[in-house]
């Protein structure tokens, strides 16, 4: 069945040569695996992901949000924890403090964060119709939500649904402020992967962000800010 679905149609870009290569690669592999007992489905008897002992270390117990805040700040991000009522106002203040005047805001965040930002004198630019890359480059920053935050590693994960905007939105502008809800913070990577599975099945792309863009390519000296946003602000609303 799988075979039928994958037969190359003649209008495939590289055509016949491709189909011949495909046969050769697959024949080489099948020949190479003559020692493996054939079967319709691969066996799944060895130790696999599910068998790994779950939450370990500091994430296992205690203040998961606190651990996330600490580890995210470790990378050079600015992280604040607030009650949910004060989150957007504080976000606006943080932006104004940094001289931010024009930001992009995804459509799904307009109702929640729009008023507080506008009241602080920040101009909101909508990505509708989509802004050209050069226009994104002219913005001071972007404010988005996220899908999951991981305490163990201090990581934000965006699935680019409606309150996070398409990928370029959080990439080209030089500042990214991310609003995180307390119930989005999970202790570790395995739990994050479980929560992200529906996004993957829906075909959404994911971007995992752990601090601002960084490099150690010159003499292993850490430099923050190469191509991605050089400033990462995180506001956690509980």
């Amino acid at each position: 069945m799988v075979e039928e679905a994958t037969v190359m149609s003649p209008d495939q870009p590289t055509g016949q040569a491709d189909a011949a290569s495909r046969q050769r690669v697959l024949a080489t592999i099948t020949g190479a695996l003559s020692d493996v007992s054939p079967g319709p489905e691969p066996e799944r008897t060895e130790t696999t992901a599910e068998k790994i002992s779950r939450p370990a270390g500091p994430a296992a117990s205690g203040d998961v949000i606190g651990l996330f805040a600490e580890r995210c700040a470790d990378y050079g991000a600015t992280v604040v924890r607030l009650s949910s009522g004060r989150a957007t106002a504080e976000a606006a203040r943080m932006l104004v403090d940094r001289g931010v005047r024009r930001i992009a805001l995804p459509a799904g965040l307009l109702a929640e964060a729009g008023p507080a930002l506008t009241n602080s004198g920040i101009e909101i630019v909508k990505d509708d119709p989509p802004l050209a890359s050069a226009e994104l480059d002219q913005l001071d920053g972007v404010v988005t939500a996220c899908r999951v935050a991981i305490a163990e590693t201090g990581t934000l994960v965006l699935d680019h649904s409606v309150n996070q905007g398409r990928r370029a939105l959080t990439l080209v502008p030089d500042l990214h402020l991310c609003l995180v809800r307390g119930n989005q913070v999970v202790p570790d990577v395995p739990q994050a992967i479980s929560r992200l599975y529906p996004s993957i099945l829906a075909g959404l792309p994911l971007t995992w962000v752990s601090g601002p863009s960084a490099t150690v390519d010159i003499e292993l000296t850490r430099v923050e800010g190469v191509h991605g946003p050089r400033t990462l602000l995180v506001v956690i609303a509980e």
Binding site: D74, I150, I200, T207, S210, P212
Partner: peptide
């Protein structure tokens, strides 16, 4: 603990 950026598409 984690690299700055991971993309999945």
């Amino acid at each position: 603990r984690m690299n700055p950026y991971t993309s999945m598409w």
